[in-house]
Amino acid sequence: MTGKKIHSAKKRRFINNTIVHTVLAVLAVIWVFPIVWVILTSFRAEKGSYVSTFLPQSYTLDNYIRLFTDTSILNFPQMFMNTLFIAICSCILSTFYVLAASYCLSRLRFKLRKPYMNMAMILGLFPGFMSMIAVYFILKAIGLTEGNLIKLALIMVYSGGAALGFQIAKGFFDTIPLAVDEAALIDGCTRWQIFTKITLPLSKPIVVYTVLTSFMGPWLDFIFAKVICRANSDQYTIAIGLWRMLEKEYIDSWYTCFAAGAVLISIPIAALFLYMQRYYVDGLSGAVKG
């Protein structure tokens, strides 16, 4: 009798496991499928945007080669360099802003602390690009919407609001025991020394996380870049470039190149993302104890 019971429990568990694994497999296929499709399309030899077969009939590397050699209409290498430059500069600025603001809000007690946090919350509720047009007017008024100055404008826009996104880094700093700071204070450290010599080295994960997120911002943003660059095609970033490849006048000849560009962009971003994934989880759940 008991043997039968154990047997049926085993059987039920087996069935459960099979169901779960099958469902997971189906879902995983759905999730991976578009990515595989893009990779295949980027190697597709047939031209044109929409073809009548799902899988490519023949494969080629021409799409990648064309992306880097055909610079007459859409200059992919230049867009890449633009984005890289903007990303590096705005990354340095916004990392400093985010870490400085988070440290102050987490460790120092000053009068404007609560008002600042409330302000950040309220500003966060406005649609992000509601002020986009106004930002454009301001940049135009100080003459930053022409030529190479557009890059400066984009850097300022990307790092401008950075200090409002202090929550994750602040949450991390909060988990570092106050006793560490107090010990340093007794030893005669200034607050600045505590920040640079104790807090930052202890918070390597969140520093890496902040650096990477702010570095990735300009690669992913599309709206601000489009509004600020307007028709200055020599200042375009990757995102606008890829988007343009899908516009009506380009889509037929550039479609497979779009896929190639998408793959090229996704590789570094994916690598960065997978690398910082653990920080992402840690930072949010505040699971790291100093």
Binding site: V38, L220, L242, A262, I269
Partner: peptide
């Protein structure tokens, strides 16, 4: 996770 590693606009 692979799918959110691909840039969202892409």
């Amino acid at each position: 996770v692979l799918s959110c590693a691909v840039p969202m606009f892409v």
